[in-house]
Design a protein around this nucleic acid. Structure first.
Lengths: 350, 350
DNA sequence: GCGCACAGCGCAAACGCTTGCGCGCCCAGC
DNA sequence: GCTGGGCGCGCAAGCGTTTGCGCTGTGCGC
């Protein structure tokens, strides 16, 4: 009779199967199992195959804790994301998650929404020691708080913007603004408004500032005098856009064209225009930024930016940085594209 | 003078400070430091205070890997989320993240979008051994795949739906459907359509099935004969809603009211109606589900469901389950609420 | 005045891996 | 036939915490 041995062939609740179990059944040491499973040299092909098959059969998975302790690595990447319920950030996150998953990295998220949470995050740095790298999706951070990121002790990558000297992936928002306003100028508009945005706490984000600058530059190059009252600032989102448009319509000389910070803002503006019975683009043209999934449906002219790709690129950057130490360009600017649809046209012949 | 070139390998103040460092400086053993920092008994108040202050000063943080290895716990909770770029899921995630962060738990996300990724996820179970619990945000899973969740070896909680016998947090979607359709019936409508949805791959999700059932029940109770052609199924989202409405309008006897699976679908329907010049609610009433942030702006009547709260509740449930083993009710149904706004009204007197 | 209980703390054994090093063994080259 | 060099693998020392247990010293009851 063979000595009674625990028959936990069928994995299930109960003590997890350890590397030692695999090693024993394979008749090798745990060292060899470890090397075999991670495709490290020093294991013959047959042995490696046998071990892998066995591990598979026992549905063995390494303990990330133990592995991490021993190797000094976590296999995780932290992602700091503000306003996760906004399309832009969620999509960016999806892009990041995709490449990280393909690289067998886990994704830890830190939702940092608002100034208070931001302060808390940078004060406590809860991500410390928990990941091999940190990806921060663009959010406004005072220099003083940003400095604390160095304490985190791992690579930091910025997605969708820039921060200090950290490697980043973004689009050229000044160019975006110039392009959008330029399109309107090219159509013959001279009274061009811009709807700027701020978050719920009144902070203007860097992307907004850049797009505004582009807008100003485009008007300047066209020799169009600035009309400050055509620049309105509202809270993000559809609501803000709607309110902004109301303000613009109430002007003595309303604009003939509007450049909205984002497509969502533009949709809000469109809503107000429709309610007010103002023809688009007959009386007023509208252009946004993003190419939000529903923009096509609204026939909205926009400057498309590759959001998911920005996330994916940032993820890849983080991984490369981790592996090669110093690889690939570490300041990436992705291209944008003007998508002309039905909400922009020449100004009404006056 | 130190001609030594600047080391770029100093991303932080040298090697991380360990518990042993804290212990030495405090003149105690690491055991005491460990207990002190985690507020465990066996440490005098003065000692504890001294240790905490010191740890703070050295900005010490425990190694999650080491701590995890020793304690057999990870301090992490995995969240499985489909379609993270949709408002519903992102908001649910935000709710979960909030309570978990407050409980000092980290959140690992697994974006499982589509059948292929789903199969892959349940086949490999990449979350295994990586978290103390898993929260699955409702997605359709074949029984055969769902069974594999047991292999994960930790608590599983379902948010926004049900799955097998796992504890869950959700709303009563049958009731939601009954309520929405009931509202329309109450207004006097008899030709009530429903726009159902499927995901990009043609699967109808459980919530949709439930709401449809509620719809049928409401009509049945009112003695309204079913007109199968009034039940159309389209892909999620605004686009789907728009297309569905087009189909309904092309019917020989179009409905006088439409119950859309969600607010986003309803918005698509509204868009089509506006384009077609159909008065709302004059000629056709529209009701959705969710109370999406922009629904108010569209003056959309809807059945509100507490999305973020569902997430938060699921998170809390997971934590309680972890701590007390078996606490609190583990099958929670949150209330919904009919929000009557401007897109529903009595049918046109015929 | 003698124990006894208990508070406060240290010792050291896990926890489950990774990895530097060393030891056979087989084969090729002289 | 000897030797040198790999290759394939095992040994064992960590990796930084947690935690059961044991030790000391104080205060209290009798």
């Amino acid at each position: 009779m063979t000595p009674e041995s625990p028959q936990r062939d069928t994995p299930g609740p109960g003590p997890a199967v350890l590397m030692a179990d695999v090693a024993r059944r394979a008749g090798v040491s745990t060292a060899t199992v470890s090397r075999a499973l991670r495709d490290m040299p020093g294991v013959s092909a047959p042995t490696r195959a046998r071990i892998k098959a066995l591990a598979d059969e026992l549905s063995y998975v390494v303990s990330p804790e133990a592995s991490g302790l021993a190797s000094g690595t976590t296999g995780r990447i932290a992602v700091v994301v503000p306003k996760i319920d906004l399309w832009f950030f969620a999509t960016m996150l999806a892009g990041i998650e995709g490449v990280l998953r393909d690289a067998d990295m886990d994704v830890l998220i830190y939702h940092v929404d608002g100034a208070e949470e931001r302060r808390w995050f940078f004060e406590r740095l809860p991500a410390r020691r928990k990941a091999d790298a940190v990806i921060v999706i663009a959010l406004p951070v005072p220099e003083q708080e940003a400095e604390r990121l160095d304490l985190i002790g791992v690579q930091v990558v910025i997605a969708g913007g820039e921060l200090r000297d950290y490697p980043h992936v973004r689009v050229d928002d000044v160019d975006v603004g110039r392009r959008a306003a330029g399109h309107l100028v090219g159509l013959g508009h001279r009274d061009i408004a811009m709807i700027r945005t701020q978050d719920g706490e009144g902070s203007v984000w860097a992307a907004d500032r850049a797009r505004s600058q582009g807008y100003c530059e485009a008007l300047g190059e066209a020799g169009i005098p600035r009309r400050p009252e055509l620049m309105v600032t509202v809270d993000w989102g559809i609501h803000g856009g709607a309110r902004a448009m109301e303000r613009l319509l109430s002007l003595e000389h309303p604009p003939t064209a509007v450049f909205a910070y984002s497509d969502e803002v533009a949709m809000g503006a469109l809503l107000t225009l429709r309610r007010a019975g103002v023809g688009v683009p007959g009386e007023i043209s509208v252009i946004g930024v993003d190419d939000h999934p529903v923009s096509e449906l609204y026939d909205l002219t926009t400057v498309r930016q590759p959001v998911e790709l920005q996330g994916a690129t940032a993820g890849r950057l983080a991984i490369d940085l981790l592996r090669d130490g110093e690889a690939s360009p570490d300041r990436v600017t992705l291209p944008t594209e003007l998508v002309v649809r039905g909400t922009t046209g020449p100004p009404r012949a006056s």
